[in-house]
Design a protein around this nucleic acid. Sequence first.
DNA 1: GCCCAGGTGGGTA
DNA 2: TACCCACATGGG
Length: 222
Amino acid sequence: MRRRLLDIYERLFAAYGPQGWWPGDSPFEVIVGAILTQNTAWTNVEKAMANLRAAHVLTPAGLLELTAEEIAPLIRPAGYFNAKARKLRAFVEFLAQGHGGDLNSLWAMETAPLRETLLGIHGVGPETADSILLYAAGRPAFVVDAYTRRVFSRLGLVSDTVGYRDLQALFVEHLPPDVPLFNEYHALVVRHGKECCRKRQPTCDVCPLRAGCAYTPGSGNA
DNA sequence: GCCCAGGTGGGTA
DNA sequence: TACCCACATGGG
């Protein structure tokens, strides 16, 4: 399985090249982006991030000065703006109260308890927590998402109803805990999901994974 | 007009 | 525990 997963990685890298994730200028911006991109296209997130930056509140202290009601209109383009405004507030409140508003204090934690701590924050679920661990904290946490589930279920490696932890285990149990590898692998899977392995992809003819992809249109294995 | 997008939390059986 | 649903804008 290790060889299979690395082969898939190599094919995706050959097809798409390095993806340069995460698109964020600082660890805090990565965290904000991770919350704003929940079930949302990244292009919409960029607009919301630009609004926060223009308002000079794309910092822990900056967001802490605003109420959720004040944050909401700034992040409107990202969708679910009322819910996400509360999530951003929850994160900066947690950071202020538990870590003096300093991410470096948070990063002092070991990875496992850090993940549990992140999961305890309103609005941070498993994917967001792992995205923060990998792309903001530089920990070897493998991030899986809807694209990962679709791509790897079509390859026949997991069920299309596989849960987060079981899907993540496929990678964690067979790959070395290598941060640059985990970073690029997840980014490439997302890129592949957008380019080729879409929900209603009519054929897999141009798929760089086609030799190992069991997907056929209408077969119910989407 | 319809489908989709780098999920999560809360309510109900 | 396991579903089901609300949350919402913008691009193809």
